[in-house]
């Protein structure tokens, strides 16, 4: 290991799962060696860009790469959707940040991913499987066209449930419906891990509370440095204030104040919307076809804070 191996943050592969969801595989051999499930990176796409936290969706030690799955909903993520191709580079990518998820000795676990949380729940499901646990995977999407990585999940889950809002694939309903069924079927679930929009994680925590099943959620509030220096990512856990970047990002879902988290995620909503609209207008002016998502749709997304956290 030599610092000379440090990365130029070259994108080696890109895959589009839908109009808004895309995958970037970034070369960073040192980070691929160090990364563990549950950790995240902070990315800057260009010199004038903002620092956005993205959960590590996968890492490949042999290829020396880090995989990120991104939803194009805000200015930065839409701009990246347009600019990032195999062969281009990111301006910066630092990590792995945060405490790794404690993949312990649980015998039976439910791994729940919703929307953007689907990608980062994958390495956790795989980690539990590698530790010999019985893994029930539950993933939620709005509709069939948005579903991705079904085969990867099936390969590491003993049971796998897809939920869609409109019923176009798998179970019709939210992931909480999947959790309800899993709990009904298995009385011996040791742990639930849920990653997704805050509303979804809140729902998951509520679904397991009465059953007293340990439930871990992965929070990604707005961050700047990601090293514990700014405190922008502070979250309320029980009666304590924690910084998600260094104390988390995983916390006990039954103790997280989700309403506080959701309120804090709206901090820059107005600026974000203005930036996104300005960017769309600029794209139209320059005749760029894939200015894609019109600003109106931005407001219609079920989880308006996805845009600020991206992962």
């Amino acid at each position: 290991m030599h610092p000379g191996e440090l990365s130029r943050f070259e994108i080696v592969a890109r895959e589009d799962f839908s109009d808004v969801t895309y995958l970037l595989e970034v070369r960073h051999p040192l980070m691929a060696r160090a990364a563990k499930p549950g950790q995240f990176v902070i990315v800057m796409s260009h010199e004038h860009g903002e620092r956005i936290p993205l959960t590590i969706a996968d890492f490949d030690r042999a290829r020396g790469t880090i995989t990120l799955v991104i939803q194009a909903v805000g200015k930065t993520t839409r701009e990246m959707q347009q600019a990032c191709r195999a062969g281009t580079t990111l301006h910066a990518m630092v990590g792995p940040m945060g405490m790794p998820s404690p993949i312990g000795s649980a015998k039976k676990v439910v791994c729940v991913g919703g929307g953007l949380g689907v990608a980062p729940i994958f390495p956790q499901a795989r980690g539990f499987k590698e530790n010999g646990a019985y893994v029930i995977g539950i993933v939620g999407f709005r509709s069939k066209g948005l579903v991705f990585w079904e085969d990867k999940f099936r390969a590491c889950c003993d049971e796998f449930i897809v939920c869609t809002d409109d019923g176009s694939a798998g179970l019709k309903g939210l992931v909480t419906e999947g959790i309800r069924r899993a709990i009904e079927k298995h009385a011996d679930i040791d742990e639930v891990v849920a990653i997704g929009p805050p509303v979804m994680m809140k729902g998951c925590a509520e679904a397991t509370r009465a059953h007293r099943i340990r439930t871990l959620v992965s929070l990604n509030p707005i961050m700047v440095d990601g090293t514990g220096m700014c405190g922008g990512c502070r979250v309320k856990i029980g009666d304590q204030v924690k910084f998600a970047c260094v104390d988390g990002p995983d916390f006990d879902g039954h103790r997280v104040d989700f309403d506080d988290l959701m309120s804090r995620l709206r901090r820059y909503a107005r600026e974000e919307r203005a930036a996104s609209e300005r960017w769309s207008a600029n794209c139209r002016m320059h005749g760029l076809a894939d200015a894609a998502a019109p600003a109106v749709e931005l407001l219609e997304l079920p989880d308006p804070f996805d845009d600020v956290k991206g992962g």
Partner: peptide
């Protein structure tokens, strides 16, 4: 925190928003 305010303004150049992407209303 003052650290967040100063970092957004000084390093991330929020004072030049929207030329720079980091906001600091």
């Amino acid at each position: 925190s003052a650290n967040e305010l100063l970092t957004r303004c000084n390093l991330m150049r929020a004072r030049d928003f929207p030329d720079y992407d980091t906001p600091l209303p």
